[in-house]
Design a protein around this nucleic acid. Sequence first.
DNA 1: CACCCAAACTTTTTT
DNA 2: AGTTTGGGTG
Length: 692
Amino acid sequence: MKSITLNREQQQAVNFGNFDKSTNFVSSPLLIIAGAGTGKTNTLAHRAAHLLLNKVDPERILLMTFSRRAATELSDRTKKIVIETQKNNGKPVANFNLSWMGTFHSIANRLLRRYGQTMGIDPNFTIIDRNDSADFIDVLRHELRLTSRDKRFPKKSTCLNIYSRCVNSQLKISEVLKQDFPWCEEWENELTSLFKLYSQKKLEQLSLDYDDLLLYLFYMVDEPEIAKLVRQNFDHVLVDEYQDTNLLQAGILARLFPDGNGLTVVGDDAQSIYSFRSAEIENILNFPHQFSPAAKVISLKINYRSTQPILDLANELLSQSKIGYDKKLVSHQIKKHTSTRDKPKIVTVEDDVQQAKYIVETVLSERENGIDLKQQAVLFRSGHHSDRLEVELMRHDIPFVKYGGLKFLEASHVKDLLSIIKWIDNPKHQISAFRVLKLLPGIGPNIAKKAIDFLQLNEHQFKCLRGFSVPTAANEYWFNLVSILIESQSQQAKWPSEMEFVNNFYRPLLEEIYDDAYVRTGDLEQLTNIAQQYHSREKFISELTLEPPIASGDLNSEAHKDEDFLILSTIHSAKGQEWRNVFILNVADGNFPNEYATESPKGIEEERRLLNVAITRAKQSLHLIQPLKYWVPEQPKYGSKHVYGAKSRFLTNSVYQRLESCFYPKNQQHVAESEPKYKQIANIQSKIQQMW
DNA sequence: CACCCAAACTTTTTT
DNA sequence: AGTTTGGGTG
């Protein structure tokens, strides 16, 4: 295939492969190293299209991406290319579907439901999200009496994080604790028994957490016979963001494609930012050796996104690293003449309030210049960094959408309603049952537990609950709830009308529990609307768990399509995206690098890559903001919550030379001193005390 | 046994 | 500021 939109290396990557004797298109293992903005998605889409145009069956291509958004984008582009090429060649345009496309977790979900029986896995399992898992662990840790000790046991989310690391890194718990959770080392034995119970109970309750999806699939394809069975479905696999895969994911691929034939992976070692999820940068670095000598490596270095001054900054930042990235990105844009205006800015401000003001002011003046809010994004290290800014934006009536902040599914009323649905879907799912039961007035943890045990004793037939008595306060709710449960269990395929019954049941409870019930009703309506889009209850739950709506505006994205809004996003959530103007908040030591990551050189390197990812999102204009003072929400023991941040260690002199230094407000380097000061004349304390 | 309140403690990023 | 734990009351 020829296309003028591709450069030489891209073209090479697209066309890599041959026809064998039987005219099947085959390809040996291929690694595409694609630096930021080098047209990775375009190349992948063209490669997929190339396969299709060479008669590879679309059903037999496996596309693994990092997010749903990436998956749809890739598939849309692929289709477009295929259709246009067919038109140009005067061929009839065939309709097709790339059905095996999604995240590792969603692909694992499908494969486990289809082939799980070979491992004794009931295909009707429920996927539990992070919150459910944490609640699960919470219950078990009480059961094991791990609370009420003289020293506090790690909290549920920490326990889950440790568990997750163990599974995904395939390391022993002692190793994980030593490396990443040294403050929990003393609890090793307790944690071990907790995790043992956790995995056992999950199996009993037909519940798989995110890690299980990968783990179970790994064990499944570890059986050569089953691997062969699964392998028969696919001729080609394209894996995106390979630098962020972990050992389990790489292991799955290695077992499905032992010789690497048909395997194409794409990634950028300089953008590996998910080690907390046990991503192994070694996966991408070792790929050529793993499949030596057959493996081919192609590097894309021409950047189509950013101006050269922005790339100069990124290149300089990476060149400071001890790991030798081979990543001198070169801009495709022909530079007319470089002036200081093109240079990325480092803006020094007094504190987060000034930081927010600077953003508001700049964003608005840019909009005056005809740059939509949508073309501008504010990026930050952690979710709460935008708190101040959000207040400021609301005050100025500037619409925004935040990615990576508080999620829709984390709102307790949404969790309540979903729990009912999940319990109906899987009567063995005790975490949902527990949550639902505790909603009813007069029912607390103990009665809830008894009811659940009672249900288990009666083989999870909801109708047995008629014979379970509850406190009078709960009577009416109890009767209605049990009616719904029995109804759903007896008849099938009532989705999504079932959602209505559940809604009607929950509404009065909502009003009883929350003061702001009215506001929350809106969310429940949205949830009901989403439910309409799925044709089964199981699909609805699975999809919602695997791809939760990530931004506040995500749910009614159609409605928001015409509107203009500013993007706020964590850097992790900004992966793969680009904007004309980019602002990076809190570029100070403690955030870049994050204070918890500075223990190990590896950690610091990842922080550097994180800053690199943030920088390379910008097309034309980039502002790093450096507050002298910033807010530290935790640890009040240090007294003042304002901390004077040190200059980021990444901003060395040579990096600084790539930046233009500014101050905000202009010409006021010492804001604190400019505020008027008055002498104390009276004492408020004595006045107050005199009142009594 | 459920519910409310106060005190102690808290490790970023997410499929 | 949010979570966890323990104590007191009805």
